[in-house]
Design a protein around this nucleic acid. Structure first.
Lengths: 251, 251
DNA sequence: CGCTCTTTTGACAGCATTCAAGCAGAGTGG
DNA sequence: CCACTCTGCTTGAATGCTGTCAAAAGAGCG
């Protein structure tokens, strides 16, 4: 067992918060303990448990009883939804520090699985709800978190409904870059923790279409690939123009 | 000024709750005042204001300061998001009793406009936040609400990413039917408060494609139109098979 | 009845998918 | 160190769904 406070910290942190590293806690962090006092934090450190997972391992399945709330402490995961006939779509990516599987309903509306090797820290959801009652500030944090996820979903809806294939891929690459920068990444080379098929399942495209879009970007010298999992941003402005819906008249 | 309690009631109610009519309040309602006592309700009745709106009138714009929280007390509205180049998409529909424009952030991430003539009841968002502090139960309600919206968004993401045009239109019709049933509607003829263009902007399709899908349903005797704004469900099972992702092998 | 807005339908074009083949990088074992 | 293999990526050609453009029909309203 490493540090059970990770759950707490990430909950305070929320999606993609910008953070320094917290000496006491050991991994990426916050300034988010701030709203809570030490006693509260100690209180929350109980009943959480770390689990190590391999790439492609499920964290929880769609339809599972929502017994635990998870913090992704290391690695990248994706949220999946499946249809009765087997078609499936990724509805989001989650990175180190993000919260997974928090829902007020009885069961998980979607599944979560690792894309890379990694680690999660889980806490009983009942325990979390007890904490809500004791520390109202905590509940407020979760409301913010939920509404930020909602905003993300709406961006995604815009992309799926109105973007061309190239625009969607550009938007996805930018969101990856953003997530890594928020986690302290420096320099122009980023990690690409998803296969073309993974990306396609997120963007509502086939893997071939994703590949073609990336090839186009490469030919235009907007990006440069370093092996299968490294991507260098050569012309971020042009990608932004594509990926934020600025239309044809872009750089 | 009619009944300012409407804001309160709807907040308690949330999205598409199933309700009887509350005698005291005059319009559709709840059993949701239940978790709060009379003093709380009186408290919330202050500082809310009713506004009457015509079809196509904006309720608030994307980017506006999020000063008010609204309850749609009568009519149908849609939530819109626009891209820098002018492309726009509807990200949701809202019906009588639903809440609009609640967000913890400083400005509205999307706009809202009426589809029909109707009425909203608005309350200062600062006032609401004061009430959160005083009545923690209220905040809990909003968290539930937010997470229900999130689930809706995810359904929509699946539809946009994986459904064909016909499946999307079927899913949309079913969601309309569901919303009206939850509000006490009886019988097989439902109201269609949106033009083909409105539906297309929600489903990521053109108005012609929506029209063709509806024509196909008509030819298969799944539905029957009554003028421009009435739709009768003749074979709901077949529409469900289409609109819930049961694939080709459906009835 | 005549106006206008919405819907329907048709013909054609275009973008993404499908199917198929070849390529490249990483790991394995001789 | 070099095949060998596996997996993921790239590219090509053809199909098909949806978009685009255009015209006609229908519904609602004064």
């Amino acid at each position: 067992m490493m540090n059970p406070l990770d759950v707490t910290r990430s909950m305070m942190d929320g999606l993609g918060a910008d953070g320094d590293t917290c000496v006491k806690c050991g991994s990426r962090s916050l300034g988010l303990c701030a709203p809570l006092d030490a006693a509260t934090l100690d209180d929350m450190a109980t009943d959480s448990e770390r689990v190590s997972l391999e790439a492609r391992a499920p964290i929880f399945h769609q339809g599972d009883e929502a017994r635990y709330v998870y913090t992704l402490t290391d690695g990248t995961a994706r949220l999946m939804r499946v249809l009765p006939d087997g078609r499936q779509a990724a509805i989001g990516f989650r990175f180190s520090g993000d919260i997974l599987g928090f829902t007020p309903s009885e069961e998980h509306a979607f599944g979560a699985e690792m894309l890379t090797d990694g680690m999660v820290c889980r806490m009983e959801r009942r325990r979390l709800e007890q904490l809500f009652r004791r520390y109202p500030l905590l509940e407020r944090r979760f409301l913010d978190l939920c509404s930020r996820e909602l905003a993300q979903s709406q961006e995604h809806i815009m992309a799926l409904g109105r973007f061309t294939a190239e625009e969607r891929v550009a938007a996805f690459l930018l969101s990856l870059v953003d997530a890594q920068r928020r986690r302290g990444h420096k320099g122009p080379v980023f990690d690409l923790p998803a296969t073309r098929a993974d990306i396609g399942e997120f963007l509502g495209l086939t893997l071939e279409t994703v590949s073609r879009a990336i090839s186009v970007f490469r030919r235009r010298n907007l990006i440069c690939l370093h092996g299968h999992s490294g991507i260098e941003m050569l012309n971020e402005g042009a990608l932004i123009a594509l990926g934020t819906g600025e239309g044809q008249d872009a750089a």
